[in-house]
Design a protein around this nucleic acid. Structure first.
Lengths: 172, 172
DNA sequence: CGCGATTACTTGTCGATACAACCAACATGC
DNA sequence: GCATGTTGGTTGTATCGACAAGTAATCGCG
């Protein structure tokens, strides 16, 4: 039974680096956003997801799915964001069990103010150290892995991310 | 001043996938190890780092550095691991401010028992979905990024990881 | 209808981490 | 040698997320 296929030298080396990357990246993103905008990366993602969605509004369940949060976690975070005036919640008219969340103007203003610094961080730590070929390779590699980790593409569906520019105002 | 270089379509796509990967990977590793061995991935890393070090022993500060932990965090985790009999702590004879941590036989036994399942998880979710070329590319790409995130190579220095096999017993 | 099951969310509790404050031991300047 | 500062580590406090339980609305089905 004990037929474990241990890692080759190359596999181990690549894995060690990937783990280190996954360990360090979230902290760097959180630190910059927290310092410059008072938002965790997760909160930033929540506001971005709402800002990029139709009517700037999304159901809590859908939002949780898109941001890889459990519903209780999102509920707590949403309460805090609402207390800060960055989002608003109201019952969904079509399904009275459901709750809709909307980014407020203040929320949009905050992420638009935060976006440049965040993009700088992303460039400085990741994008600008890679060649165009490596960027494409990263896209393919991460795609393969995500086919396992996220087969439904919940986290990579087009919303959630600042693409080219501050393309948020196109909401309403 | 507002000369932010926004992300191109390719950059954005690669970045979204990398973020999703960094978001999902820790949870998958934690879940499997917690379920099968009662260890978080961080605790597993601590035990592995000790097991791979000379005399199975390391200074708390060094261990914190290698595992990307703050010293308070490591202190709390070490107390819990010690209560479970997986490590032992004792004052360093050479510097009486310092504390040394050692994996116990029980700790070694636990990680050796946990390693096969962990390796399976790593293979299933990452290594086995990549071609040999992609493995090499991942190594290079992560290396570039880590040159920014971890310039001192604290997390990638040879310890910390199960390389080819259960090569732990070679300690004492 | 009407009863159980499911869905959507909120709330409560607990464990874990960050941050700050703290103490002990070493190191230096004078 | 003793005052000052630095290093190594632990302990307390507040915050955040996971898990479980609870509530309310909808669905399924006889």
């Amino acid at each position: 039974m004990d037929e474990t296929r241990w890692l080759s030298t190359e596999e181990s080396a690549a894995w060690v680096r990937l783990v280190a990357l996954a360990e360090l990246l979230p902290g760097v993103l959180d630190a910059q956003l927290l310092r410059d905008a008072g938002l965790t990366h997760f909160e930033y993602g929540v506001l971005m997801a709402l800002g990029a969605s139709r009517e700037r509004t999304m159901r809590m369940t859908e939002l949780a799915s898109r941001t890889n949060a459990t519903l209780p976690r999102l509920s707590h975070v949403a309460r805090r964001l609402e207390e800060r005036g960055l989002i608003r919640r109201f019952p969904c008219p079509e399904d009275r069990r459901a709750t809709n969340a909307t980014v407020t103007d203040a929320g949009l203003a905050l992420i638009e103010a935060a976006a440049p610094g965040h993009v700088d961080t992303v460039r400085a730590n990741v994008l600008d150290v890679l060649s165009p070929e490596q960027l494409q390779q990263l896209y393919e590699i991460a795609g393969r892995v995500l086919s396992r980790l996220d087969p439904d593409e919940r986290l990579t569906a087009t919303s959630c991310q600042f693409s080219e520019g501050p393309a948020l105002a196109r909401a309403g």
